[in-house]
Write a protein that binds this DNA or RNA. Structure first.
Lengths: 141, 141
DNA sequence: AGCATCTGCTTAGTAGTACTAATCAAATCG
DNA sequence: CGATTTGATTAGTACTACTAAGCAGATGCT
């Protein structure tokens, strides 16, 4: 049904803009931004990544991620060091504080979202779980 | 299953950030931003809205929408006039150019998204259609 | 009528994200 | 050993969002 495709697209765009803005606004004083948190999570899952690695993971340019990373370093949430193999590269690692900040932020944001998700029916949650990877696939295609 | 709730939340956050950034990057030179486009669409559906109306529709503050609207006015995509009943209010209307810009932008962005959606199965599209309003509900709750 | 208050909007300042382009330094290729 | 490529940084631009300060019109109270 070709008519529905347009429909889905418009709804999806609107939903993405709203959700993004909503997620941002859930951030409280002292917490890192959504994008920065994703960097922390990435480093948590796999340490020792270079700037290029982080840029690729976040799908942004080197310049953009460089800014984000600079802020995180100033907060002492991550450390930067030169790669011993290739000294052009910098490799990043999560600090103890970064680890804690990441966990705390994640928990806080999840609390809010979980409350919302809890209001849904089990079927709706199941739909969401199924759809989320689909959305990522669309975004990354 | 409480475990899945956390899962859904994390996926959803990541998907929202990515999708938003993807939508933004689809914008080409000369097109208005995602947020501005939503304003144009809002005015297209219902003209003569005040700044407060637009702020409420977009769920942002007056200051934020004021900026967006100022840019649109500079582009001559919308016109601003004083409400005759209450002269504190300003009411906005889409211009011919705004109408065209809106349609063109919408079509261009939809083309990209439709191509993505076309790659999905009918069942997945159906899921998306069902889920989109749910996402909006979450964002606006 | 006249002052106080409320309401609608604007503007300035801050912060954060993203992009491109210019630049620098290390590695690598010929 | 120069030329080129690659990794990263920085500067400049554009947008979005927020808060706070301030202005102007409307309304209410005495």
């Amino acid at each position: 049904m070709p008519e529905n495709i347009d429909e889905v697209g418009a709804e999806l765009r609107r939903a993405a803009v709203r959700l993004y803005s909503r997620f941002r606004s859930e951030r409280v004083e002292g917490e890192v931004s959504e994008e920065a948190l994703l960097v922390l999570i990435t480093l948590d899952k796999q340490g020792g990544m270079s700037l290029s690695d982080l840029a690729a993971a976040a799908k942004v340019t080197l310049g953009s991620i460089s800014q984000t990373v600079r802020r995180l370093e100033q907060l002492a949430y991550i450390t930067k060091s030169r790669d011993t193999e290739d000294r052009r590269k910098v490799v990043f690692a999560l600090t103890e504080q970064g680890q804690q900040a990441s966990t705390a932020s994640r928990r806080h944001r999840q609390d809010w979202l979980n409350a919302r998700l809890g209001e849904l029916t089990a079927a709706e949650r199941a739909d969401l779980l199924r759809i989320a990877p689909l959305l990522l696939r669309i975004a990354d295609s």
